[in-house]
Structures are given as C-alpha cells and as structure tokens.
C-alpha cells in the first residue's frame, strides 16, 4: 500500500507510490522505457505505473453539482 510512514526520523513523513519525475527532461523520461511491462517487476517505477494504470481504468466521475448561488 502506498502512504507508508517513516517515524524513525526526527520528522515523520509520508512516502507516496508516485515517483517524482518532475525534474526529468522528456529524453530522460523515456530513456529506458523499453524495459517496462514485466508484471513481476517490483520496482518503484513499475508499482507507480501500475497504480496509475488502475487509476485510469477506474476514473471517478467529475465532481460536479455545487450550488454556489443561494
């Protein structure tokens, strides 16, 4: 499960299943993309991509319907 806590440090923190690729260039992002797809792959990247795929496969409805006028 994502959202594991680390309470061993001075400051507890929550680690996401999503990896931080915000600083990568597009070239870096796809440099080793051919290695993807092994269902036995337990790497953080593989887990992150499976979670993303599950998210897309079960999209929630848009949150709509707020009556802002009284």
């Amino acid at each position: 499960m994502d959202g594991g806590t680390s309470t061993t440090g001075a400051t507890p923190e929550w680690r996401s299943a999503m990896i931080d690729v915000s600083g990568l260039s597009l070239t870096e992002l796809t440099a080793d993309a051919d290695a993807d797809g092994d269902p036995a792959d337990q790497s953080p990247l593989a887990y992150c991509l499976r979670r993303l795929a599950a998210d897309l496969a079960h999209p929630g409805e848009p949150i709509a319907g707020f009556n802002s006028a009284l």
Binding site: E13, R15, S16, V21, L24, E28, T30, A31, D32
Partner: peptide
C-alpha cells in the same frame, strides 16, 4: 540506475499532510 528508474518517491511531511 539513472533517469526515471532512479527517481525518488514524492514525500509529504506528516505536518504537511
């Protein structure tokens, strides 16, 4: 590991969450 395979998870401090 380099690039995307070396990327670390996003994190939030407990106070931030």
């Amino acid at each position: 590991a380099t690039g995307v395979t070396a990327a670390r998870p996003h994190r939030l401090s407990d106070a931030a969450l």
